[in-house]
Write a protein that binds this DNA or RNA. Structure first.
Lengths: 210, 210
DNA sequence: TAGATTGTTAATCGATTAACAATC
DNA sequence: TAGATTGTTAATCGATTAACAATC
């Protein structure tokens, strides 16, 4: 996958494309034009064609795009076929919600383990995922190649846990703590899920009218 | 609060400003220049000054910005002082994680109730928040002004629940289901938290290098 | 006062949209 | 073939950055 520079705006739209294509496929739609697709997604046809052209030529003049084929292509582009591995660190409410309810496999990830300090959890499984003691994380990472650490630990150990993940060579951190992580390894990517930022944006928007 | 048109990009940065100012304040910092603030946040000084100028004049030549005052101003801009109310619908793992761990008050919201169909939960409290039966939601909303409905229900009832919220006049929906909600009331704002989109963007970024 | 730093106007850069030749 | 629709180049629009007079 040779990558010219693709803008962040485009990257953020790719998962939406994928999601909508999955829905369209489930509805039995076989082909779609950029203009029809644009209507579904509230984008211009131009933008969709422009976005896709960053990665190749997936359509056919006079026909449009094959829904299933395009979906497959985008899953490749997103790296969903690479069988990335993930571990959840912190099996509190949020960690458990992710383990039990979030379909990692649908995003191409294998969730292979979770870690917590709670002795009541350690040794058990949640949704088929084994829970190990947090103390064994470092050892585990040394043995097992892990692509992404999902950080759902309490604030005060967020940075130290992240440091451990980085040191052991994870490629990315999916950060649910509202700590601004300081990572000095430039190849490691942090993706923040800031609930509060999202709620505050909503707050602004509903406070709009005077 | 008179609103000229403020771009989405600016709105999305406001919560980050607020968060960083809160941190700086906690660290005891009293004043900061746009250039120092820019360094902290990885933005240019120009951008910060430009962003803030959408809402007024909060700095002082030769001095910079008073951290606490600016934090206060931004909280006003975001509508955090309006005492918006929220209810959580769906007290499964994710709903409970939000009720128990997410500090709604820190974003200026009052979480006043939660709803679920599970009889084991109905009548109890979680972190001081009463859980009512989902059947009583409609009645509750008619009695109680609610600004935001937090949607953490299973996929198949997401749309119908949203319809109910809209009909009863909520201003916003904080949507954690991965359902694309169809809302025909234009004044109602939907803020989506798409975990999968976030993870897929991360997937792309860690799959980048070849 | 001199130095620092703002708010704002102008310049630049990048992203979105429009147009159209190529072609299925 | 004629109609539809792509991929791509050019035009437009908007957002970011730079510059600077105003002033604390």
């Amino acid at each position: 996958m040779k990558k010219q520079k693709v803008s962040g705006a485009v990257i953020r739209r790719l998962p939406r494309y994928f999601r909508h294509l999955t829905d369209l496929h489930a509805e039995g739609m076989e082909r779609i034009s950029s203009s029809a697709f644009g209507k579904t997604m509230n984008l211009t046809a131009s933008q969709i064609r422009q976005d896709l052209s960053c990665f190749g030529e997936f359509g056919q003049q006079g026909y449009g795009y094959n829904v299933e084929k395009l979906r497959q292509e985008i899953s490749e582009i997103l790296g969903m076929t690479l069988r990335h591995t993930a571990v959840v660190i912190g099996a509190g409410n949020l960690g458990r919600a992710l383990i039990e309810n979030f379909r990692f496999d649908r995003s191409g990830f294998q969730l292979i383990a979770a870690f917590d300090v709670d002795q009541k959890l350690v040794g058990s499984e949640l949704a088929g995922v084994p829970i190990y003691h947090a103390d064994t994380l470092e050892h585990y990472l040394a043995e097992q190649p892990v692509s992404v650490g999902v950080l759902t630990v309490p604030k005060h150990i967020a940075q130290s846990t992240a440091d451990c993940l980085v040191e052991k060579g994870v490629k990315g951190i999916w950060n649910f703590t509202n700590v601004e992580l300081a990572i000095n390894e430039p190849s490691v990517v942090v993706e923040n899920v800031h609930f509060a930022d999202s709620l505050l944006a909503l707050s602004y928007m509903i406070s709009d009218e005077e």
